[in-house]
Design a protein around this nucleic acid. Structure first.
Lengths: 190, 190
DNA sequence: GGCGTCATGTAACACGTTACATGATTAG
DNA sequence: CTAATCATGTAACGTGTTACATGACGCC
């Protein structure tokens, strides 16, 4: 399991509350690992019991108080041991691929709109990633700041993961174009 | 949920037993949807109760008898309604991406072997897909057979899904090369 | 007054994974 | 005789999803 580990990585990058983690799982780290706040609170509680993380009460004004979690030594050790443990190259799950094969037994043309919607979602995500890359890694401000600092593993590794997301979205867009062209050849009445 | 629907598609392509389905989920349809036999038997039983599939006892010689399932009208209707229902473009889950970001807080070079293992697994899967494509779609035998038959949606849609798998594996291999180059810059002692 | 955001949680259920269990046949 | 393949299942557990619940603050 890796939700624990994803949380550890996120808290090492920056401590935060369960709520903040939930929001990160809708953004940066959430691009390749999703979790809802219910899951996060449950796991966070377990991790606190196991001594992987430590909570600190942070009173806030104008907002509810929060519990800020940070990684404890045991958590760091758990992450390290997981990193050294080989994992199975995971298999993908594509609902859409099931639908595409299923369309052969229904009306292929009826899927076109659905595929277009997915294509649009991937286009949006790609734009979002590219904007983030520009802002944090390749834009003038980011490169100027980086030029003065020493090589930074955290930053470089975040960037290579983001490049993976970008490559994935580009591949999906191209493939969905291929799917659309194929579906068009099997419209109603053929 | 889509395991039900993946099973329906697979049974429409060809009726079969739970055991046979489990094997298909290790191969063709399993490239984009995985399931173990325990899951399959459980779901198949529910689907039978719901009247989505029908079982027929097939006595065999030299092997245990099997129950051959095929799709009933209710199942076809359920599939059709699912096909017309929009689904959310799913988000990916990449353990490996979590590990790569986590490596910043450990020893980046220690991940190199792991990434190489994953790269090899993707290379193997790519070869496997390409062999299947040659055999079923682009090879001389397959194209000769197809030339005599009318345009076949089932076949074409299976092919476009396979092309998606091929594109995915190629993208992953390229990205993992990028990851390896990045990790190499942060070896121990840097 | 109502809606959105910040903040944390419980409960029930669905789905997925791992381990265990059985038993026949065929190939080495 | 041993291992692999065919064939079907149960039980326990862990993870993920959906619905429900609460309450304060700020903005329109």
């Amino acid at each position: 399991m890796a939700l624990e580990h994803a949380i550890l990585v996120s808290l090492l990058e920056k401590p935060g509350s369960g709520y903040e983690l939930a929001r990160r799982f809708d953004r940066s780290i959430g691009y390749f690992w999703t979790a809802t706040h219910q899951q996060i609170y449950r796991v966070l509680k377990r991790m606190e019991n196991d001594g992987w993380v430590e909570a600190r009460d942070v009173p806030q004004q104008g907002r509810p108080d929060k519990k800020e979690y940070s990684v404890a030594d045991l958590g760091r050790a758990a992450l390290s041991s997981w990193l050294h443990d080989p994992i199975e190259p995971e298999s993908v799950r594509h609902d859409l691929a099931v639908k595409i094969r299923g369309a052969a037994f229904d009306d292929p043309a009826a899927l076109i709109r659905e595929v277009q919607r997915h294509r649009q979602a991937h286009r949006d995500r790609l734009s979002h990633y590219l904007a983030g890359e520009e802002r944090d890694f390749t834009g003038p401000e980011a490169t100027a700041a980086a030029a003065e600092a020493p090589p930074d593993a955290e930053r470089e590794l975040q960037h290579v993961v983001l490049r993976g997301g970008i490559a994935y979205e580009r591949m999906m867009i191209d493939w969905l174009d291929d799917v659309l062209a194929t579906l068009a050849r099997f419209g109603p009445g053929r």
